[in-house]
Amino acid sequence: MVPLIIVVVVLVVLIIFVVGIYNALVRLRNQVDNAWSQIDVQLKRRHDLIPNLVETAKGYMKHERGTFEAITEARSKAMGARNVSEASKAEGALGEALSKFMLVVENYPDLKANQNFLSVQEELTSTENKISFARQSYNDQVLFFNNKIQMFPSNIVANSFNFDKRDFFELEAPAEREVPKVSFT
């Protein structure tokens, strides 16, 4: 009788333990998903802001057609991205194009005094920040989740219920490693 009780008690404790770990893992996975959706929202917002930005700046910057085209092209590529790795490449390129644009803007004092442009610029700056903070928080969550999945004892539960590792989201800036071209024309 006594051994039976011990076995039952051990089993019950074990089940409670497993349920606890399982619930913690589900909660973490939801947090990761939520953090990802935050990035997604901000990326979409950036796509929405760009036409507005281009429209406001066009009148002032007649000689910067190349810059505008680069932004528009990067935007349409980013909007067409189908998976995470494609998106991180395209969004990285878009970010690059935008920061180049912001540097060019420095040469147009009239544009910088335009109230409409200033508000679009603030929105864009903030959206850029939000993307990078959302990425930061997503990567934190992913790190925490992946650690949990790989560490004992939660790895046993994670393996038997198919919790998969998640990828970090890094914005790749392709131009960052290139040497800037200088031309005197």
């Binding site: 947090q31 939520n34 953090a35 935050q38 901000q42 508000s119 603030e122 929105e123 903030s126 920040n129 939000k130 903070f133 959302a134 930061q136 928080s137 934190d140 969550q141």
Partner: peptide, 16 residues
Amino acid sequence: YPQLFNIVEEMKIAAA
């Protein structure tokens, strides 16, 4: 207060 509001939202995102 667009800038203040944006900054609070940025930090809200960073802190999840």
